[in-house]
Design a protein around this nucleic acid. Structure first.
Lengths: 246, 246
DNA sequence: AAGTGGTCTAGACCACTGA
DNA sequence: CAGTGGTCTAGACCACTTC
């Protein structure tokens, strides 16, 4: 029978103890935790409390529950994506890390731009833009969802190619030079929709990379954002003294 | 009495409905949601189910529960921090956004370097490093925790100044030039410890900015990481064609 | 069929807030 | 004091996996 320590709630005492066990290697990655019933006996608490403790671990991304099978310790391996060099092929970027990457295009259509987009691409309210939605997978697992808006003149010319491959490399190959990219990086929680698409729990951390790309004449031509699974992706950047802008 | 739709669990149906109400402006930021008791009646479900629905909203960062008071819709306003220009004073960066920033130093001590640190700073195993831990606050609210490791030779010279202010500006003022910074950006979940320190729920998204700074001779002198509240901070970067390195 | 986790119920007690 | 959310219990039924 376990008792509450330092006025910490029981479920937290239990989840912290299990957490320590995971980090100490007691339960290795991929291994199964004791079942709810076993934990109830081991700690002398009700099922709800055990479940709450496990929920705490799930929320911290440490374990994963599988119905009918059990609770398993998650393996943690991330893939790194370079922000400094958006022109590199995503495939190549991944291959170097021993991973295979692929893209599944969800949609590619002409739409009236949302306010934030017409702002960023300096469009008139009557203009339309191409909107491409795609899923990015590594080793068959979805890691990110990307929504890109492309100016009509560009999208028209290359629409065929844009649908099957990444945008930066496609433009580069066709002689459209991106001179500058303004990017933001932030964090959000997975909504119900995103948690289903990316196969992660509700509210799980997502990395959001927003971007606007400009050509030589400071003309914005594409913008959009990539929502990546926080447990699978790391961005890297190299900053040199020369380019301390703004 | 509500019934489960499309085989979606009840708690999700309820939290999604409340979510829609929040986005439609039915419940504005800062406003109070109906109490658990009211929601039980309104949807004709048990308290546990209502609580689960609210937990879903908390997990998505949409609402905040306050014991003895009620559940309130969270206001969403983020502060932007420039990555491209780490030399700018954090204070100035914030002031421009109408926010006041401050730092609370937690510790500043000489320690044997963790493996990752001696690697990054190219230290011998016998070397020691200064380790500075600090909390960064905006408007009195903690938004980030930073742990920085500084080579002994640098730390010794400026130890007084380093304790009270940010590192990049201090070094810059004293003629130590940072030529290059290698940074990574990723996401994690708040642990129990961090969730208490940053006043956020367990498992909430955190932005992790890891960095290693180099002087002119490609000599790494400081490294560390900043863990920021995902709901409060956005990083921005401007990438120009010249500096596509690696 | 046995064992697993997922959902949901009714009810109890506690700690905190605010009038 | 009444009303709020936080913790915990015992127990029921379901859906899924594995044998």
């Amino acid at each position: 029978m376990i008792t509450t320590e330092n006025s910490l709630p029981l479920h937290l005492v239990i989840s912290e103890r299990l957490r320590d066990d995971i980090f100490s290697g007691q339960y290795a990655a991929g291994e199964q935790l004791p079942s709810e019933h076993q934990l109830m006996e081991q700690f002398g608490v009700s099922r709800i409390t055990v479940r709450r403790a496990i929920a705490n671990l799930v929320q911290q991304g440490l374990v994963e529950a599988q119905r009918g099978r059990g609770v398993f310790v998650k393996a943690q391996h991330k893939v790194t994506r370079s922000l400094s060099n958006p022109l590199i092929f995503f495939d190549e970027d991944m291959e170097r890390q021993g991973t295979t990457a692929s893209i599944r295009s969800l949609s590619f259509e002409l739409v009236p731009p949302p306010l934030a987009v017409s702002d960023r691409l300096k469009l008139k309210t009557t203009d339309q833009v191409y909107c491409q939605k795609k899923v990015i997978l590594t080793d068959g697992i979805p890691v990110a969802i990307d929504i890109t808006y492309i100016r009509v003149d560009i999208g028209q010319t290359f629409s065929q190619e844009l649908q099957s491959s990444l945008i930066y490399p496609t433009l580069d190959k066709n002689g459209v030079s991106i001179e500058r990219v303004e990017a933001t990086l932030e964090c959000t929680h997975a909504t119900v929709e995103l948690s289903e698409a990316l196969e992660i729990p509700l509210g799980a951390p997502l990395l959001v990379n927003g971007y606007t790309a400009f050509t030589e004449h400071n003309q914005p031509i594409i913008c959009g954002e990539t929502l990546s699974r926080g447990d699978r992706l790391t961005y890297s950047v190299v900053l040199t003294k020369g380019n301390s802008v703004l």
